[in-house]
Simulated scan of single mutants.
Amino acid sequence: MSAVAWICVASLAAWLWLLAGQGFFWRTDLRLPPRREPARWPAVAVVVPARDEAEVLPASLPSLLAQDYPGRAEVFLVDDGSSDGTGALARKLSERHGGLALTVGSPGEPPAGWTGKLWAVRHGIGLARAREPEYLLLTDADIAHEPDSLRELVAAAESGGFDLVSQMARLRVASVWERLVVPAFVYFFAQLYPFRWIARKDGGTAAAAGGCVLLRADAAARAGVPDAIRHAVIDDVALARAVKRSGGHIWLGLADRVDSVRPYPALADLWRMVARSAYAQLRHNPAVLLGTVVGLAVIYLVPPVGLVVGLARGDTTAAAVGGTAWLVMTATYLPMLRYYRQPLWLALTLPGTAFLYLLMTVDSAVRHYRGRGAAWKGRTYGAAPEAAPDSRA
């Protein structure tokens, strides 16, 4: 066989392993686990860190205030140094819509060693502590919840004995670039952190989706969060790792009724979202970066290239094996496109989207070495070795 054919064989072997041996990551049927209403509804504090979120807050905060929860629940929004009137707008929305009680706090600038979001979360938990909540719902300011969201999350945690229940909010998919990039973003995340492995008590895989995390207050104290992860750029995965390491039982799945309202209309918006943390995910390690680039190329780029080159050269083996690998790749992407209600033909674009992610990852490393690191809303964070937890922890 030709060298191209052998490379295609390696790619096909990788895809067959991913298909069956990576926790069935490509399936999208993992929703909230079976649940029943508890005899007593525990008290919940909803903590919302917010920095310059006036644009999205009218679409998200009223959904939290309107939660139909049988127990005691309060919302604590932490204005993290906003310059657009986020805190004042939150108070106005509370006055207009009513519902759950709202407290707005501001912690000031984070001290050295803290990311702004986690400093805000710490302040919010501190505000809530006087109410002695049994659960904390950590949710981002761009996340909208259906009225029964909190009830369903608590019922799932109580029924399953989970210390952490997280749902990956359905991200907005409206623009052309959102259609191309967003479903793949969730697909790649699930491939790296298979949801079925996360729920295993004896497993090492840990992850959460920061937009929607229900956490037992005693589990948070036992894990020492957020202080223990204060420098984490990828804070949701770091949070899940800390809880699981301390003996907590965690769960992560896809959401049906929790949605992100933040728009990413242009490629530049999505590029910044990925590039700001991609190299942190690789622990700022050049060798891991190189391995990731090679891996993405072999797994996602070789199949279509092998098919085209094989057909052009009359190399039937390369064409057949490359085409088969591309077919398997395409089949694994279809469930995610269905979940996002997108045309199934977009599955054929996955190699191109993977190439974009490869470039975003390289750009993330370039930004890091140029001193721009993980930049977000006017803040830039340096490299903390613990900031990028891996899937084994």
Score class of each variant (00 low, 15 high):
Y300R: 09
H123M: 14
I250M: 02
V366S: 10
E158W: 08
Y279W: 04
W15G: 07
G116N: 01
A375C: 07
Y333A: 03
L337P: 00
L61G: 00
D227A: 14
P70W: 11
P33R: 07
P33K: 07
D80L: 11
V362M: 12
A14C: 10
R392A: 15
L301G: 06
W114Y: 05
A228N: 11
V48S: 03
A319L: 03
F24I: 15
W26G: 14
H368T: 10
D390C: 14
R27Q: 13
A128Q: 00
E132T: 15
A209T: 05
D202A: 03
D227W: 12
K117L: 10
R313M: 00
E132S: 15
R222A: 15
L311S: 04
G248D: 01
P49V: 03
D84A: 12
V165Y: 09
R35M: 11
V186A: 15
Y333F: 15
F76C: 06
V308H: 00
A375W: 07
M360G: 08
S63T: 15
V9A: 14
Y264T: 11
S391Y: 15
A157C: 09
M360A: 14
E158M: 12
S277E: 13
H249M: 00
W15P: 07
V225A: 08
H97R: 01
A280Y: 10
G253C: 04
S364W: 05
W26N: 14
S60F: 01
P33L: 12
E158D: 11
R129K: 14
V78Y: 06
W177K: 05
G71K: 03
E37Y: 06
A384T: 13
S175P: 03
G371Y: 13
A255P: 06
A144R: 13
A54Q: 09
W271E: 07
P34S: 02
V362R: 05
A120K: 02
E152G: 06
L118V: 05
S149C: 13
D236A: 08
D163A: 04
R367C: 13
V233G: 09
R216S: 07
A209C: 08
A66M: 11
R172L: 01
L118C: 06
E146F: 11
